[in-house]
């Protein structure tokens, strides 16, 4: 139950955030999509022992969050919720790689280093995906997909799915509530009604699909999906994309923290 409500809440929060109008929101959706993909690729191209070199990549989410005025809470919560699987897999690294290394008097296990590396990557990657949708919104992102020549049929279907998630989650949460009120002390739907509980909803969903089709057909839909005009990229978008890419490349090719660190230690000495 709480799971369903929180999912709906999560969708709503991101949808609301996407309707803001900060300078990040105004960047062309395709530009943001490409920037995010480049970001992910660069971050994931780091090897498994890398930690320090990854740190500059925190700049990207932090800058987006602040400039786009995205509240940290909901994003952080989602990032943490996506963690268990990563932790589940990553926790084996310390178990299987018990070789140690030492650094200024302390002994580190390589396994923990790789584990930490995976955690950092997971944080920034999940964060970047969430920030993409929180600053872009589903409809604009669909327009970006159209510009990437993703077929209309898929884009239309994606939008329909997104649209009706809200309707169906409501419907399921009503059904679950009605069920749980008459079946206290049950942790979930009893096996006897597995089929009919979901099956009923499927049948209703088929009927709804028929009505939606009718309402589309009455407005002369014949399988062709006509989108409105999609805005073109402008020079500002190019600057945004290339600016970030430049930063990613510099941060990838140079270990920035290491440079800063050695500079500082040199000065100190």
């Amino acid at each position: 139950m709480s799971n369903i409500k929180s999912s709906l809440y999560n969708l709503r929060v991101l949808d609301d955030l996407a309707r803001k109008e900060t300078s990040i929101h105004l960047v062309h959706p395709l530009t943001k999509l490409l920037t995010t993909v480049v970001f992910l690729t660069v971050v994931l191209s780091f090897g498994r022992y890398e930690i320090v070199g990854l740190l500059p990549f925190f700049f990207y989410p932090i800058v987006i969050i602040t400039v786009a005025e995205i509240p940290l809470g909901p994003i952080l919560k989602r990032v943490l919720l996506a963690m268990p699987f990563i932790i589940g897999i990553g926790i084996f690294n310390p178990v299987f790689d018990q070789q140690t290394m030492s650094a200024f008097g302390l002994i580190f296990s390589k396994g923990w280093v790789t584990f930490l590396s995976i955690l950092i990557k997971s944080c920034v990657c999940v964060g970047a995906s969430l920030l993409l949708i929180a600053t872009t919104g589903m409809d604009s992102l669909a327009a970006a997909l159209r510009m990437l020549k993703v077929p209309k049929i898929f884009v239309l279907q994606l939008l329909l799915t997104y649209r009706y998630i809200y309707v169906l989650i409501e419907e399921i949460s009503h059904m679950m509530l009605a069920y749980s009120l008459r079946a206290p002390r049950q942790r979930g739907i009893h096996p006897r009604v597995w089929g009919s509980f979901v099956g009923q909803l499927i049948l209703r969903t088929f009927d709804r699909a028929q009505r939606i089709y009718d309402s589309m057909a009455l407005r002369n839909f014949n399988g062709e999906y006509h989108t409105g005009k999609i805005d073109k990229n402008c020079w500002k978008d190019m600057v945004y994309l290339f600016g970030w890419c430049l930063f990613f490349i510099i941060a990838r090719t140079n270990n920035l923290p290491m440079l800063i660190g050695s500079f500082i230690t040199k000065v100190v000495n």
Partner: peptide
């Protein structure tokens, strides 16, 4: 049920759906 008729992601696109199909 308006939910059957409003199937796009913005009100504008929904209202424009018919005219665009013409």
């Amino acid at each position: 049920d308006p939910d059957d008729q409003l199937f796009m992601t913005t009100v504008y696109d929904d209202v424009a759906f018919g005219p665009r199909n013409y």
